Simulated scan of single mutants.
Amino acid sequence: MSIIQRMKLSFTKLVLAFLLFFPVVGSTTVVRMQTSLGVIDVQLFDSAAPLTVANFLSYVDSGAYNRSFIHRSMKSFIIQGGGYVWDGSTNNTVKTIPSGTPVVNEFSPSRSNLRGTIAMAKLGGDPNSATNQWFFNLADNSANLDSQNGGFTVFGQVVGKGMAAVDAIAALQVVNGGGTNGVFSNLPLISIPATGTSIKESNLVMINSVTSNHSKLESDSDRVFAYLEGLYPEYLSPANSFPTGSVLSPVSSASSTSGIYYYRYYPTTKSYIATANGTVYYLGSASQNQIMSLGSLSDYLAAAAAKGY
Rank of each mutant, 00 (worst) to 15 (best):
S142C: 03
D299I: 04
T90L: 13
I118E: 09
T257F: 05
Q157T: 14
N149S: 04
Y263C: 01
V210G: 01
S252T: 06
Y59H: 03
L187Q: 03
S99T: 05
T52H: 08
N213R: 07
Y266E: 00
P238S: 07
I78A: 14
P238N: 03
G125S: 14
S10E: 15
A119F: 12
L172S: 05
F136R: 00
R67Y: 15
G81L: 01
V25P: 00
V166Q: 02
S47N: 13
G162R: 03
W134K: 02
Q43F: 04
A143N: 15
S249M: 10
V210T: 06
Q157D: 12
G308P: 01
S110E: 14
S62W: 06
V247R: 07
A302G: 11
G259Y: 07
V280R: 11
S271R: 09
S237C: 13
A170K: 06
P23I: 11
N213V: 10
R264Q: 11
A254P: 10
L19M: 14
G182A: 07
I199Y: 11
Q173E: 05
Y261V: 03
L231K: 00
Q43V: 11
V42P: 02
E234T: 15
L138K: 02
S89F: 12
D299L: 11
T257E: 13
F69G: 12
S108Q: 12
G150E: 13
T279R: 15
S212I: 03
N144M: 05
V174A: 08
Y266A: 04
I118L: 11
Y227C: 13
Y261P: 01
P193C: 04
R67I: 00
R6K: 13
P102N: 14
G230K: 09
I190W: 07
G308D: 02
N277L: 08
T96C: 11
V39S: 08
G308Q: 09
I118F: 10
N105Q: 11
D87N: 12
P243K: 05
A64V: 00
H214F: 11
S129A: 13
V85C: 10
D222Q: 10
I192A: 03
V154T: 15
Q5D: 15
S73T: 03
